Amino acid sequence: MVDVSGDLGSVSFEAELTDEEKDLLHLRARSAGLTFCGCAHAAFLCKLAQSLRCVINGPTADRGSLASGDDRDICVGILGMGHMGKQLLLALLEKSGIKPSHIKISSRRPESAVESIKKGVECFFDNGRLAAWADILFLCCLPSDLHKVCADLHSHLSKHCLVYSFTSGVPVTRLAQLLGHNFILKPQYDFVACGTADVWLSCTHLTTALTDPLLIEASCPLTTSGGISVGLNWVSAVLYSLLNICTSTGLGSSDALSLINTVLKEKSPHAVEFDALSFISASQAASLCTEEPFPWISLTDAQTKETPLLCFLSSSTSMQQRISAAYKSMLCPTHQII
């Protein structure tokens, strides 16, 4: 069937806008871009953590020193099923490779998640239960609900649960205080002037958009081709979170570095690799035995202070290229790595 109105400008959305309103159309692109980038970056983090978990629990792993059990999937919780929570769930089901049975939702209106339940995702209203179960917990609640949500979570979060916050207006330092927890990652997005920011207007349907190599390219954390930047601090915190995952299993520093390099190398041809000096100071690295785990890293500090990893990433174009290649190929396997 042909849409006879498809070429009629008089019935388009923009036709009814005043000149002043048309000046604000770029805000639609920004909103769509922020949602897409938030979901894509979260899926990338989950994919990295999932890949690392699989390598750690692989057939050649030392079972005596690693987490018990043969279930290799990480457990992902989403708290809040508003617009962001629903879009995030779609992205994780589409791109993370995590089974629906390993994704759970806590919402004040579980009945609104009927479609998710059909896909095998469990939904309930119990924030504490979700926190106690999850390896990665996404906060998608409103700022006005944050104090109550943090009170619900405070006594249930394990040290090794990574809290990823999409709640706006609340800095990571404040979240750490409210939760009594320092394993928190909060993306900070900035808008950068560029001529291709309207690329986000094509993000009408997230699941379709996540298959578009141009949109994946535009959302890459280490480029600004789409006019939205999350910066090196976020990338640094993601990599420190992988290091903490290794530390939580008791892996020695040498094995941890090898596995993190492996997870990235599988997706990229670039040869540059991480070593101990990439993550910790020279004095700490000198005193760290290869069989000894890395110290636990506060992600709050990693996002608010200058760290060895941030300095390394800032100075290493090759490593930035490697991470960018990993991002693009993980989210869009058909993407041609250059």
Results as ranks from 00 to 15, higher is better:
residue 200 W to D: 00
residue 195 G to M: 14
residue 203 C to M: 13
residue 193 A to S: 10
residue 189 Y to H: 10
residue 198 D to Q: 10
residue 192 V to Y: 07
residue 209 A to V: 07
residue 192 V to N: 08
residue 187 P to T: 13
residue 184 I to D: 01
residue 205 H to F: 08
residue 199 V to L: 14
residue 199 V to F: 10
residue 195 G to N: 13
residue 210 L to C: 02
residue 200 W to E: 00
residue 201 L to N: 14
residue 205 H to E: 07
residue 199 V to Q: 08
residue 205 H to L: 10
residue 180 G to M: 03
residue 210 L to M: 14
residue 208 T to G: 08
residue 201 L to D: 11
residue 196 T to E: 11
residue 202 S to A: 14
residue 200 W to Y: 01
residue 192 V to T: 11
residue 191 F to T: 07
residue 189 Y to A: 14
residue 195 G to D: 11
residue 207 T to A: 12
residue 207 T to N: 12
residue 210 L to S: 03
residue 194 C to T: 12
residue 206 L to E: 01
residue 180 G to N: 10
residue 186 K to A: 09
residue 208 T to Y: 06
residue 197 A to N: 07
residue 197 A to P: 00
residue 201 L to I: 01
residue 196 T to C: 10
residue 209 A to N: 03
residue 190 D to R: 15
residue 181 H to C: 05
residue 190 D to I: 09
residue 195 G to E: 12
residue 200 W to M: 01
residue 181 H to E: 04
residue 181 H to D: 06
residue 184 I to R: 06
residue 184 I to K: 06
residue 209 A to L: 06
residue 199 V to A: 11
residue 186 K to V: 05
residue 199 V to M: 11
residue 197 A to W: 01
residue 189 Y to N: 12
residue 191 F to L: 15
residue 210 L to V: 00
residue 208 T to I: 14
residue 204 T to R: 10
residue 206 L to A: 03
residue 196 T to I: 06
residue 185 L to R: 08
residue 196 T to W: 07
residue 190 D to F: 14
residue 210 L to E: 02
residue 185 L to V: 06
residue 207 T to F: 04
residue 187 P to Y: 06
residue 206 L to Q: 01
residue 210 L to F: 10
residue 194 C to P: 01
residue 181 H to L: 05
residue 210 L to Y: 09
residue 202 S to F: 01
residue 191 F to G: 07
residue 206 L to S: 02
residue 196 T to V: 10
residue 198 D to G: 02
residue 201 L to K: 15
residue 187 P to G: 13
residue 190 D to Y: 13
residue 184 I to F: 04
residue 198 D to E: 11
residue 202 S to M: 04
residue 191 F to D: 02
residue 202 S to Q: 15
residue 197 A to F: 04
residue 184 I to L: 10
residue 197 A to S: 13
residue 193 A to N: 08
residue 203 C to P: 00
residue 205 H to R: 11
residue 199 V to W: 06
residue 204 T to L: 14
residue 194 C to W: 01
residue 202 S to P: 00
residue 195 G to W: 07
residue 193 A to H: 09
residue 210 L to G: 03
residue 201 L to T: 04
residue 191 F to Q: 08
